[in-house]
Write a protein that binds this DNA or RNA. Structure first.
Lengths: 394, 394
DNA sequence: GCACCTTGCTGAATCGGATCAGCACGTGGA
DNA sequence: TCCACGTGCTGATCCGATTCAGCAAGGTGC
């Protein structure tokens, strides 16, 4: 099937390639010899500890010059063995980097790591606990300074004992027990409050309905996002004395369930606004509303969570509270490295960092943003092609 | 904006966390002492070199037992320092892991690396040559066994000298000079041949037109895919004595250009089949054909390259030759590790590995696959949501 | 009875940098 | 004149594995 073919005449290239063992790297000892000083002096000079260690400016300059001329680059492995720090962070995710979600998570982590002069060791467990443990030990054995364990959706993770060997941060997850381990998660309940406030501010006092979770507790199994979003929504509505006009829980948050749930809802009440618990539910809701001859946002406003790439593509464009993946990834690295540097000494034992979920105001809420687009429909393939290219957040 | 809040009462958790320096790791010396033998004997026993090094079965068993009981795990950093190998591969891509392209590339690389007991150090250059060099040196200094340098689209890369320090493989790219460095690329010209053969086999003798590149050489600057796809197409057509009925080159391969190019084409000729040089062009072509009242595939067949996630979503579903990202990533690691193990000794100096691009037969070519879907349109949001979830290739 | 080989193991060097303890020299004070 | 102290550097050890060279005990051949 696949095969090796030859693009150019390179008969001796393979030989050259095999032989390119490259000239051996320059070591500190060689630099020291070149500068005519001891290895100790050279080490201190290059480490910027000359003054502290009483190395004269002349010697320091000689060492620096020798190092530069020889093209000296310290061997990180050796340094790592001695100091126990590798300037490397492990990033283990439970799903593939191929989803936009994981991709942006990694992107943020990568950027933040680079800013702090760290490299990222990446692996995926595909949800296999055995593999997860193996990958963690593989990374720890390689001397990573810390580990980030990322989950696709916010949930509780059973922390394997091996994870406690090094500083670790859970990304988008909480420890299932009371392990003293930090978490970085989206601020779901604040997002819920934000959604409720947005609806109230745009004049939706009555007729607010929920699609995806209900106060009676119907929601996807183990979804922390569901309960926190619901909490946030209800707390704001309660404070304003507003009652939820209706709600339908869904066991799964896919478009089909959104369609079905909204249909059932419409059979009972006439909503003025729909809070969908994620965008995929909202896609289904759009269809159910269209089928019922209801216009978004003129007849019914729709607001939702996640900011799926398609949310800005369906018509009217969906107003939603975004999951800040890039920021989540960046924050995980930040928290981990801060912890390593001992910069994180909260006296109150705070272990959870919540990242704000920004509201993306678009067209699906009446009286908010750029209205005037009538009828639920979809954009063209051309527009979609543009929408599905991902961009770095502002 | 972001803030630390406390989910549970964990007043002393932070302390615990700070103190969790963890019990020190067990070293080989300790295992040796426990087994009552020298460190040398222990090392040989655990390395599986007992017989070779004349360690008695009894001693070997004692060592193995002691190691297991103590929970011994060799320190990879130390081993790396001594042996010069780290069981780690660096993966540097010029664009972000957030695109489906890069994501699948990484996915394949990750899987293949794990199969060979290697870990992946990942970084992105964002096209910055300076950053690229820094990241390469950072990885080399950490003792990676080899480097994979990936490009978003097939092109020539100027190989920085530092890259020659360790074995390296270019993924989706060729060296700009004659550097003895291996490449893993999609087999574009075979894909071109495959497209032409498919068209001929389904009865399209005349009226074959090209959108995106023309034999006169109009194509995106520096796009190797363009010339190779074209080569493949023309060679098969030529062998069958078939002339290209028309062609329009495009400087950029986006939907807008596909639309425009197809319009111009339709003004001159009446095609029976359109070969679009990528799917995004095909999206535009679909629209131009629909505008002209032409049905796909009844009036005009459309075939294309890349297998964009949307290709299976637009109607009629687009027949296209897929870029095998997962396989490309996996092959890059495979080639690199094979090279490291000295398993790659082609006598003819072959340095390019071409990965087959599989044809995805769908509905846009007349007389091929499941026809009968009339009219160019788009699927529903529900269908799209399903289509844009990515799956591992079969 | 002695050279010689095999068996079964150990000592010590090595990888490359970080760092502690200490040494030689000069200066100042008593 | 002698001691104390600061200055400026070096030797040696350590991190934790791998591996080469070699050594003692026991067996074999002649």
């Amino acid at each position: 099937m696949d095969s090796y073919t030859r693009p150019w005449p390179l008969s001796r290239a393979a030989d050259t390639l095999a032989k390119s063992v490259a000239k051996k790297r320059v070591t500190l000892a060689q630099v020291a010899r070149a500068a005519g000083v001891s290895q100790t002096a050279a080490s201190y000079a290059l480490a910027g500890r000359a003054a502290e260690m009483r190395i004269s400016p002349e010697v320091e300059a000689r060492v620096r010059l020798a190092a530069r001329e020889a093209g000296y680059r310290p061997n990180a492995v050796s340094r790592s063995l001695r100091t126990g720090t590798s300037q490397t962070v492990g990033f283990i995710s439970d799903t593939v980097a191929t989803t936009a979600f994981a991709g942006h998570l990694i992107w943020g982590a990568l950027d933040q790591a680079r800013e702090r002069d760290h490299l990222l060791l990446i692996a995926e467990t595909e949800g296999d606990p055995q593999l997860e443990r193996e990958l963690m030990t593989a990374m720890l054995d390689r001397g990573v300074d810390g580990l980030i364990v990322a989950s696709m959706y916010t949930r509780e993770i059973a922390v394997p004992p091996v994870l406690m060997e090094a500083p670790a941060v859970l990304l988008n997850a909480f420890p299932v027990g009371n392990e003293p381990i930090r978490s970085v998660v989206p601020d779901e309940s604040e997002a819920g409050r934000s959604v409720a406030r947005t609806l109230l501010a745009s004049g939706h006092a009555g007729g607010i309905c929920l699609v995806g979770a209900s106060p009676e507790g119907h929601a996807p199994e183990g979804s922390l996002a569901a309960v926190q979003r619901l909490d946030g929504i209800l707390s704001v509505l309660h404070d304003s004395g507003v009652e939820v006009a209706g709600s339908v829980g869904c066991a799964d948050w896919q478009p089909a369930q959104g369609l079905e749930a909204t249909r059932r809802l419409l059979a009972e009440v006439t909503p003025s606004a729909l809070v969908c618990f994620n965008d995929r539910l909202a896609f289904g809701a759009y269809q159910a509303l269209a089928d019922a001859g209801l216009d978004v946002p003129e007849d019914v406003s729709v607001i939702s969570f996640d900011d799926d790439p398609l949310a800005s593509w369906i018509r009217p464009r969906l107003t939603t509270v975004a999951l800040p993946h890039y920021e989540l990834g960046a924050a995980a690295v930040q928290v981990l490295l801060d912890q390593l540097e001992g910069r994180l000494q909260e006296p109150d034992g705070t272990l959870v960092r919540r990242i704000t979920m920004p509201l993306r105001v678009r067209e699906s809420v009446r009286g908010l943003g750029s209205d005037g687009v009538a009828g639920a429909s979809v954009g063209t393939a051309v527009e979609l092609a543009a929408a599905t290219r991902m961009h770095r957040p502002g």
